[in-house]
Design a protein around this nucleic acid. Structure first.
Lengths: 98, 98
DNA sequence: ACTATATTTCGTTAATTTACGAAATACAGT
DNA sequence: ACTGTATTTCGTAAATTAACGAAATATAGT
């Protein structure tokens, strides 16, 4: 599997998935702990986890029967860089000054 | 119409739309000029413009029959801020240090 | 082998997205 | 009023997404 920028943005386009990421910014959490704080069926949540994994926005550690999710901040950095480049050039061009 | 973060990320999830934004970072362009550089039907492109407008990522100026699109960088800044907050906290918490 | 717990996979349904070509709209020039 | 140019809207089709509950899988403890 290769991760694309499209996958990452698509993953971020869901409020539920952004909520999951926000929970993970404080500490790593298991699927069960996340499901306690978000009001959708566990099967639905599991689908969201797959989207986040496919975008490489989270990584998992399996220990016994519990799966712990944690943020992969490097992809988030990449996204920020991409966004920065988007309006970077505009200020380098003197003819844009009035 | 109110613009949501979901709209913005959804808009960015399409390679065609990111290509449009990349073209606009150098200079404002009309729909026709953009369509010269991107290989999809004009009607399809028009749909993409609508998505970008609905996300407030571009603004338009109509002059005669031509519509000029330009980047709205403030939304892009907002997105960068949102992403930054996502991994900010992790480094503020001393208990995360080992 | 059995039971309980954690999580995912499957089947289904409804909604949304992306693409196209054809037709419609809007404006400028003649 | 007519023509050409720029762009959008409409109708349609195919693919993807997001949700649910039920069933399946995996592991730990008894």
């Amino acid at each position: 599997m290769i991760y694309t920028m499209s996958d990452a943005y698509q993953a971020l386009s869901s409020p539920v998935r952004r909520q999951i990421l926000a929970l993970l910014k404080d500490k790593d959490l298991s699927a069960g702990e996340i499901s306690e704080q978000i009001d959708v069926a566990k099967s639905t949540l599991s689908g969201h986890f797959n989207v986040l994994k496919s975008a490489d926005l989270v990584v998992t550690i399996k220990e016994g029967t519990t799966i712990t999710y944690s943020l992969n901040t490097s992809v988030i950095e990449d996204l920020m860089n991409g966004l920065f480049n988007l309006f970077d050039k505009k200020y380098e061009k003197p003819e844009d000054k009035e």
